[in-house]
Design a protein around this nucleic acid. Structure first.
Lengths: 230, 230
DNA sequence: CTTTTTTGTCGGTCATCGGCTTACTTTTTT
DNA sequence: AAAAAAGTAAGCCGATGACCGACAAAAAAG
């Protein structure tokens, strides 16, 4: 066995954290069908998840990012503090473009959507199990191109690449201001703001302005405190 | 598994419509475990769902309200036109208060959330099978009290005032789709989407489209939380 | 079983915006 | 001093936004 932690059965022990019982059941079924994987437990909220991690000592944990009480991201962060080696795979119904990066930064090693076929889910589990990072092709490309563009580390927020003005505009966009309002606010031409927006889009690898708006709004809502600019 | 032919086993034939393979698997498993129920087919989008209804002639259909392409509500409406007798149960991850009523009006006979325990799901299936209407206690109470009081102004989220179509558009806006993309998705003219957006803006008391976009994006982010305004 | 209201569906117009490109000053960096 | 990056802005053209009206079908009211 090339596995890290050998259990009595020799199987890879997996803990499922998701607040949808039927989904948990389906996932467990899927996993237990494999002869080297084994679901050692299930949890449906933050607290019981932490407890299960301690009690059951799983080799891997699969977690949904939208739990009942807290965000799965918080759970991942918390677990990552103490168990930096524990492999975590996020399985979510949300569009990855907004959450995958955060999940990875929080400590997860993979992100897959619930829409994916069962086989893909199993493949993701295996990838993560072996220490690889798993994300969809789209996400992978996005992250790579950003990585190549500069000497930025994955751990850094992409916002670090923005210039002062760009960041300023980014924040105002996130506050919901229209482009002309921003122009007025900063005493700049509308065209200038347009240029900044274009550059921001390029730096963050976002295709459309709406995507940028989503990204910005999201950032303003959640990460203002933790995700600093330089 | 078993070939889905006309099983004259006398079991209740159920069609599952959901765009999450793993969830479908779990639900099917759950249903087939019962000795009087039987999953005769699965579908993951509007078109194949309609096709399956015609081909497989199920006795009941369980449908998620958020499919890939269209809203499950539309699907229910469509099926209800031709098969008024077909029992339909909605199983959704969304907050029922916003969707349950719409689903029932559209022709469904039950609404249950994915958060519910497996046993509850089975119970709901049986209820609906026997001709009863199934909703959670909370929903039932809400509907009753509204029925008794006559008026329907009960500290509702302003989103309740949106029509089905409007809500659909609202959600897609919140997912970051552009107005033409929405048009394509719903097979409607761009102008129609524009009209809906205007009406939504009016109902939610929003002045600009950017405000609406912001509102919608934020709402989509916290699907399960209740919102308040005005 | 009509009448009225709501919902769903489009079209037109005009000003603005979005996406893409080019360009010219200041600062920084090298 | 030369080169690179940052700040500023204009032009073009197709797409979008805002506001208008319109009409058939469905639902509610009477």
């Amino acid at each position: 066995m090339a596995a890290s932690k050998t259990t009595s059965t020799g199987k890879h022990r997996i803990l499922i954290v998701d607040d949808h019982p039927v989904f948990r059941h389906g996932l467990a079924q899927l996993i237990n069908q494999e002869n080297d994987l084994f679901v050692c437990g299930e949890a449906e909220d933050y607290q019981s998840a932490l407890k299960s991690v301690n009690d059951l000592k799983p080799d891997m944990i699969i977690v949904d990012i939208t739990l009942k009480d807290t965000s799965g991201i918080d759970l991942i962060k918390e677990i990552h503090k103490t168990r930096r080696d524990l492999a975590m795979l996020v399985i979510s119904m949300h569009d990855e473009s907004l959450y995958a990066e955060r999940a990875l930064r929080a400590g997860a090693r993979g992100y897959i959507m619930k829409q994916e076929a069962s086989e893909s889910v199993v493949r993701a589990i295996r990838e993560v199990r072996q220490g690889s990072i798993y994300t969809s092709k789209k996400m992978t490309d996005q992250i790579f191109s950003r990585f190549i563009e500069g000497n930025k580390k994955l751990a850094e927020s992409p916002l670090h690449s923005l210039t002062d003005r760009e960041l300023e505009v980014f924040q105002l966009i996130g506050e919901g201001l229209g482009i002309s309002e921003i122009g007025t606010r900063l005493h700049l031409s509308v065209k200038t703001i347009g240029t900044y927006r274009e550059r921001i889009k390029e730096k963050l690898n976002l295709k459309t302005s709406t995507e940028l708006l989503r990204y910005a709004i999201n950032w303003v809502e959640n990460e203002k405190l933790s995700d600093t600019s330089s």
